[in-house]
Design a binder for these strands. Structure first.
Length: 551
RNA sequence: GGUCCGUUGGAGAAGUGGCUUAACUCACAUGCCUUUCACGCAUGCAUUCACGAGUUCGAAUCUCGUACGGAUCACCA
């Protein structure tokens, strides 16, 4: 046994498995030609970020389009930042947006698939097998430098204007012999394990990124920490081991990872493992004081996916938006195929833009309005009820107390070619329909301010004539003709042209009559088609509301 | 400071040397339609592709430089 092997045994006496064992345990996947294996690997440090949803959606789609596998993995190697319960909520929210994994971590103590465990803290032994191998082959070494020494070193580098980090001459512990290392460990000194980089900063590595194409970067020369003093691996090392043994073919991740690419490439090369194809996704941005910056969970509401859930943006509409920024040819496809499911669209890496899109709430709103407008009544009823049951007790109560009535309200001008688009999100519903309910009406009416151009005299005249003769059993056309008759009797023009031609001859036009009625019945200047509103309220209630205004 | 990435209208973008007097979608504006709003329809909105130089008969498209913006340089992922 040589000294490196001794060192490896000293640090990991209990690890007896070998790399070969692992290779056998996690064999190559049996998948069709060209199938992509992708993953989403979040850390349980908070709620799902809009950028993460974007990335995971793309990963899932790439796998699906190629009959591959999309799996989830929990990267919980940083215990300090871990937020209890966030792993579960991450998965839960992913599912809500339809980004369902085929395999992997599915929540606390739940997982599916043959390549697990899918929680990194449970894979400690797997990492140790690889690290032990690296130690035994002098590809890695223990480092005893203290945080103080390291920051001291950085100051020196700053002063000398040299690159920061642990490399070349600065990699002090890389010069230690195995015997020295063994001695210090036996003395009980703390240590981490670093990768012994063979790279030279002056050389270039060529890398092909699925989105960005050919890139040249300086070789890695950093002796990065792969094993922390708490016994867990760092991200870089876990990426190497997990994506190898889970047989990931395509790593899709945010572009903030690009600078560490040479590091990852060197890691894979050192093990003689084939590196996955990398696709570095653009990051979703936001305009802040004229500057673009990453969407920030702390500053921007729209950075947390929960915001859209709470507000009640329809998921299909929101995902539609994400698709439009993911692939530039998606919108054109959608126009040509308005009725196909978005999943029928095939993603491609080369239709992804290179710089991050500014998050455009206005466009999200447009797409959501479109979706909600085109939903049939049944679906709209169910979805809005479902949303209300979680996020709006007030709306939920209204629905439950009379589902049929609610359904009638939301069915106005729906299921037709050009439906109304009143709502962009479910939270818009309640304020817009309150007037239908007498309890709300009776309160709201107290605060009503009648526009000055309608005098009480005008109002009395119109309402008195209208209320004594209106008939809701008429067709919409006849109902409207009746309104015109009332208009004429009261001295209003029946159409816009007549009125415009000779404004002095009239008190106003039919639209003024309609406005008075609308105001009285709905307490608003804008509402859905009055005829339908009155139908739903019924003659008795409409009469009551009108009479109440005659003074 | 080093390294990498990016730059076409307010936003997303098409465009890969001549078909571009720069598609399409959102936003915005105006008009038409209309019982209001919304819908729908029509029109307008980059004399120009960050800037400068070069290659070419010809450049948003190729080359070089500059500027600007972003990412990153942890025992965080």
């Amino acid at each position: 046994m040589n000294n490196y092997e001794k060192l490896a045994n000293l640090i990991f006496p209990d690890i007896t498995e070998t790399i070969e064992d692992l290779e056998k345990r996690y064999p190559a996947r049996d998948l069709p030609e060209g199938a992509k294996v992708t993953r989403f690997a979040p850390s349980p440090t908070g709620f799902l970020h809009t950028g993460s949803l974007f990335a995971s959606m793309i990963s899932r789609k790439m796998a699906k389009d190629s009959n591959g596998v999309f799996y989830t993995r929990l990267e919980d190697t940083d215990q300090k930042r871990e937020v209890a319960g966030s792993g579960d909520s991450l998965i839960d929210q992913l599912n809500k947006f339809g980004v369902t994994p085929d395999e992997g971590y599915l929540g606390t103590d739940k997982e599916k698939g043959n390549y697990g465990p899918y929680v990194q803290s449970l894979r400690a032994n797997i990492y140790k097998v690889v690290i032990k191998y690296m130690l035994a082959n002098n590809m890695a070494y223990p480092c005893f430098c203290s945080p103080e020494e390291l920051s001291e070193m950085r100051k020196v580098q700053e002063a000398k204007k040299e690159n920061f980090g642990y490399y070349a001459e600065y990699a002090k512990c890389s010069k230690l012999s195995a015997e020295e290392a063994i001695e210090r460990i036996e003395k009980g000194e703390n240590f981490v394990i670093r990768f012994r980089s063979q790279g030279d900063y002056h050389n270039k590595v060529a890398i092909d990124d699925a989105i960005r194409g050919h890139i040249e970067m300086a070789e890695n020369d950093q002796h990065l920490v792969i094993y922390k003093s708490d016994g867990l691996p760092t991200y870089h090392f876990a990426h190497l081991v997990d994506d190898h043994f889970m047989r990931t073919t395509h790593v899709t991740r945010g572009e903030e990872w690009m600078p560490s690419l040479p590091m990852h490439i060197e890691l894979f090369n050192s093990m003689n493992w084939q590196a996955p194809t990398y696709a570095h996704l653009p990051v979703i941005m936001k305009l802040d004081n004229g500057n673009r910056r990453k969407l920030s969970k702390r500053k921007d509401l729209e950075a947390a996916v929960s915001f859209f859930l709470e507000q009640g943006y329809p998921i299909e509409g929101f995902m539609e938006y994400l698709y439009t920024i993911a692939n530039s040819n998606y919108e054109a496809w959608r126009i040509e195929n308005p009725d196909l499911d978005k999943d029928e669209f095939k993603f491609s890496f080369d239709k992804m833009s290179l710089d991050g899109a500014l998050f455009d709430l206005a466009k999200v709103q447009f797409l959501c309005k479109e979706k909600l407008g085109r939903m049939n009544t049944e679906t709209f009823f169910n979805e809005s009820r479902q949303w209300a049951s979680v996020y709006s007790p007030e709306l939920f109560e209204l629905i439950e107390e009379n589902p049929g009535f609610y359904k009638q309200i939301v069915s106005i001008e729906r299921e037709k070619e050009n439906p109304r688009k009143d709502y962009e999100k479910y939270s818009d519903i309640l304020p817009l329909i309150k007037f239908f309910y007498n309890n709300y009406y009776n309160e709201l009416v107290k605060e009503l301010i009648v526009p000055e151009n309608y005098t009480q005299e005008n109002i009395n005249e119109v309402l008195t004539k209208y209320v004594e003769s209106f008939d809701l059993s008429l067709s919409e056309e006849d109902w409207f003709n009746h309104m015109k008759e009332v208009a004429v009797e009261c001295g209003y023009a029946t159409n816009r042209k007549d009125y415009k031609k000779n404004p002095e001859a009239y008190k106003g036009q039919v639209s003024d009559v309609a406005a008075i009625l609308r105001l009285v019945v709905t307490l608003r200047l804008q509402s859905p088609n009055l005829y339908f509103v009155m139908q739903i309220l019924g003659k008795e209630e409409v009469t009551r509301r009108i009479k109440n205004f005659i003074k």
